[in-house]
Nucleic acid binder design. Structure first.
Length: 283
DNA sequence: GTATGTGTTGAT
DNA sequence: TCAACACATACG
């Protein structure tokens, strides 16, 4: 009795037995009604009719995001379960198998990413995209499949460029404009993909070693290269404000790992209450 | 306002 | 570990 019956049996429920699930539930004000419980492991109902996915790790809940489809939330749980607890973890649907090509690829993908990365992908609903993208050599990481190991501090890096963010970069547009000349020179490798399809997902590591993933794409409407999807989170966590300077780096090795950081607000040097140095880089 | 995700608790 | 429930607050 290790894992739930998965696959066909569960999928069969999808469109049937869904009659009175629409229990109304006026949120904050009150007027609570009973929420429909999910038949999937790790899936919880949300007041608005959506579904949340969560998994527990070390007596703590790890939120995996909210989803419109109950089954989608269940799949998110499955992904997390297999990353957190390994293949063989109890899942809602057919678990990944190293036997078939797809399963092996997915398992490898999971192994190559940290739990935090996987959770972030699930919450941003980019997991499928990134898994698919990982199958195309030359996508997110320059040097190829294997990376890992070397962190921010142990790797030789070169600064690519920096930019003082504009109000719109840190507003609610969820996008950072990459100055064209910098994009075409430093992100040249990915610019093609950025222009062609809907862009590529790039990984950046910050000074703390935290990995950030943004979509790098080209907007024809404004003829601009931009970082979207996930950018707003960076803005919030780093508390970026207009005028702050962010720097982009790249490892010098064959792997071309990318880095992003806010230039240390080398606090203005003040003397008797007067700024005599605003912290801007010399040269 | 609405959507998201946390605090908390009782049940497995 | 897990989900139910209530609700704070993040978000658009």
């Amino acid at each position: 009795m290790m894992r739930m019956e998965s696959g066909a049996a569960m999928v069969a429920f999808d469109s049937s037995l869904e009659a009175g699930v629409e229990a109304k539930y006026s949120a904050a004000g009150m007027t609570y009604s009973k929420l429909p419980s999910s038949r999937y492991r790790g899936v919880v109902p949300q007041p608005n009719g959506r579904w949340g996915a969560q998994i527990y790790q070390r007596q703590k809940r790890v939120w995996l995001g909210t989803f419109v489809d109950e089954a989608e939330a269940a799949r998110a749980y499955d992904v997390a379960a297999q990353r957190f607890r390994g293949p063989g973890a109890a899942t809602n649907f057919v678990p990944l198998s190293a036997e078939d090509e797809e399963g092996a690829l997915a398992l490898a993908f999971l192994a190559e990413h940290s739990k935090a990365e996987i959770v972030d992908m699930l919450r941003k609903h980019t997991y499928d995209d990134e898994l698919r993208q990982s199958k195309h050599p030359g996508a997110g990481t320059f040097g190829g499949s294997r990376r890992r190991a070397q962190s921010y501090h142990e790797t030789a890096r070169v600064m690519l460029f920096e930019k003082a963010v504009t109000p719109s970069d840190v507003g609610r547009l969820n996008r950072l404009v990459i100055p064209k000349q910098h994009a075409e020179i430093h992100f040249q490798f990915w610019s093609g993909a950025a222009e062609a399809s809907k862009g590529v997902l790039l990984n950046f590591e910050d000074a703390a070693g935290k990995v950030w993933r943004f979509r790098y794409s080209y907007w024809n409407s404004s003829q601009s290269y931009v970082l979207t999807k996930g950018w707003i989170r960076f803005v919030k966590e780093k508390k970026l404000k207009p005028g702050d300077v962010i720097r982009f780096w790249r490892s010098t090795g064959p792997e071309k790992q990318l880095y992003i950081e806010r230039r240390d607000a080398e606090s203005p040097v003040r003397l008797f209450g007067v700024n005599i140095w605003d912290g801007r880089a010399v040269r």
